[in-house]
């Protein structure tokens, strides 16, 4: 079972994010400083508008901080151009969204293959990666189905397979169980937990759900853009074993 290392994979130093709307400044993250170790499983919690998703987007390189420093996987993201940032995302980080965000015109196989087309892989190698990822999430038999032919839980598992396909160090999930029923939500969390425990992936999950947060080793509470609580869990909820 993988444990977090002592090496930080994410370092925030006085990181600030300000949005401008209608000429008004909205301070979403207020001088947040934080280290997240490689292999950790972190739940980001807090009320709506507290800055959880903003923090997740900054860590994933989808957005840029207004101030401070942000180093992820050894790279200061503030130094990268938009094009370099896109390439960095393709190599280091994957997202899992609440609404799955699969491309409706592609099959499960093609959706999972999509990020691999950005890497220097042969067609056979891509196929192998896709099949492995779909096998991990237990959807090898549904690989030729389109998203509208899958249940919500299956769609989210395809999204997780897509996130896994490039074998990123960092998985960022924004309310991954928000649109799922209790059973599917449990399945998804089992999967994420096993990816953390068995494959050593660093996972950050934004959630409102204490049960989901209970799967994480560490819980960070944000309030009005400020890190209000940083709690390391001693009593993680037991989850089922890893999938095939």
């Amino acid at each position: 079972m993988a444990e977090p290392t002592s090496e930080p994979i994410i370092q925030l130093r006085d990181t600030t994010k300000i949005y401008y709307k209608g000429g008004e400044e909205i301070l979403t993250l207020d001088h947040v400083s934080l280290d997240i170790m490689e292999g950790d499983f972190v739940a980001l919690m807090g009320p709506s508008g507290s800055g959880k998703t903003t923090l997740l987007n900054l860590i994933g390189g989808l957005d840029s901080p207004t101030g401070g420093q942000l180093v992820v996987c050894g790279q200061d993201l503030g130094e990268l151009s938009p094009r370099e940032l896109a390439q960095w995302r393709a190599n280091h980080v994957s997202f899992i969204f609440q609404s799955f965000n699969l491309l409706p015109v592609l099959t499960a196989f093609q959706n999972v293959e999509l990020p691999l087309t950005l890497l220097p892989l042969s067609r056979a190698e891509r196929r192998q990666h896709v099949e492995t990822a779909l096998k991990i999430v237990g959807l090898a038999e549904r690989m030729h189905h389109r998203p509208d032919e899958l249940s919500g839980g299956q769609e989210q598992r395809v999204a997780i397979a897509r996130a896994l396909a490039c074998d990123p160090k960092l998985l960022l999930a924004d309310e991954p169980t928000g649109d799922l029923d209790a059973h599917s939500a449990q399945e998804v969390m089992n999967l994420l937990t096993s990816l953390n425990q068995e494959h050593g992936k660093t996972i950050i999950v934004v959630t409102h759900d204490p049960k989901v947060a209970g799967c994480a080793r560490r819980q960070l509470h944000l309030e009005k853009g400020v890190l209000a609580l940083d709690k390391r869990s001693t009593d993680r909820h037991p989850v089922a074993g890893p999938r095939a």
């Binding site: 994933g60 989808l62 938009p82 094009r83 896109a86 390439q87 960095w88 995302r89 393709a90 190599n91 994957s94 997202f95 965000n101 699969l102 491309l103 999509l114 990020p115 950005l118 897509r162």
Partner: peptide
Amino acid sequence: ILKSIGFT
């Protein structure tokens, strides 16, 4: 979605 995956 494409941008989040890493497309430019």
